[in-house]
Design a protein around this nucleic acid. Structure first.
Length: 271
DNA sequence: AGTGCGGCCTGTCCGC
DNA sequence: TGCGGACAGGCCGCAC
């Protein structure tokens, strides 16, 4: 579910309530997430102080004076700051109760999310060590995308969703970026011109930044740290708009499956 | 090495 | 009303 804008919105939403707080209690109700929550997690975090709340790709890194919790929201996860007495919903899998009397609560129906803990540099963790540049960083530019795409036969939509190419671009923003760049999703990555790479890089940065500003995209159940939805769904040009008229040229938007995921595009605006 | 899938889970919707 | 199948913001790990 959450892509970079939703994860960043969550990170910035929870950070002020976490920073500097001492952990009063850790409550784990369901250990079986994508990877099981390790037995020592509660003891490693209880009584410790939150020193940082950062993001790398779609991972939220909650730094304590004892190590780092690496949180992933998977397809259906969300994190909220609330009163720990708030009645539990099905799939509320863990709480971190803070000295302030508030709590960080993780909710995830599909349990594709995860909670890992590491005592060493989280960026060295196997899941993070091999990740490509952040899309909003200067390292992700037209020259980079042109260089790494050479001789790659994979379709450009799958290429930009590959976390060894660039991180944070999921199924919604991949389709949206390609629409904005005017590039057909089936175009072979290695056939992109340098001009197309430049347009695509700009489109990815623009769409991600705009989505962050809007608080992310809520399609079904995603909510921000305060429980409110994101509003970027109103600004989607193609995603989940199959057969509706293109917002630019009125041609019906088309849908097909690529890598077991739905792709949406306008055959007139994208070549 | 690059590519393509199965699988992890629950919830919802749609056709029969 | 029930039931099967498809599908849903991700992504690892395995075959070829």
């Amino acid at each position: 579910m959450p892509e970079l804008p939703e994860v960043e919105t969550t990170r910035s939403g929870i950070a002020p309530s976490l920073l500097g707080q001492r952990v009063r209690e850790v409550i784990v109700r369901q250990r079986r997430l994508r990877w099981p929550i390790t037995a020592g997690f509660e003891a490693a975090v209880r009584g410790r102080v939150v020193t940082s709340v950062e993001r790398r790709a779609k991972y939220i890194l909650i730094g304590f004076d004892s190590g780092t919790a690496i949180v992933h929201l998977g397809m259906s996860g969300s994190l909220r700051i609330l009163d720990p007495a708030t009645p539990l919903l099905t799939h509320d899998h863990w709480d971190i109760v803070l000295g302030s009397g508030r709590a960080l609560r993780f909710h995830d129906p599909r349990r594709f999310g995860s909670l890992l803990f590491t005592q060493v540099d989280p960026h060295r963790h196997p899941l993070l060590a091999g990740l490509a540049p952040e899309p909003l960083s200067d390292a992700f530019d037209a020259d980079y995308l042109y260089r790494v795409s050479r001789r790659r036969k994979v379709a450009v939509k799958l290429f930009i969703m590959n976390s060894q190419v660039v991180v944070g671009v999921g199924n919604i923003y991949a389709s949206e970026s390609l629409f904005r760049a005017g590039i057909a999703p089936r175009r072979m990555a290695g056939r992109l011109t340098s001009e197309q790479c430049a347009r695509l890089v700009r489109a990815i940065k623009d769409v991600l930044r705009a989505a962050v500003r809007a608080g992310g995209t809520t399609l079904r159940d995603y909510v921000n740290a305060d429980g409110t939805p994101g509003y970027f769904s109103q600004r989607l040009f193609v995603y989940e708009r199959a057969e509706l008229p293109c917002r630019r040229c009125r041609t019906p938007i088309r849908q097909f499956v690529q890598g077991q995921r739905s792709t949406y595009w306008c055959p007139t605006c994208q070549k």
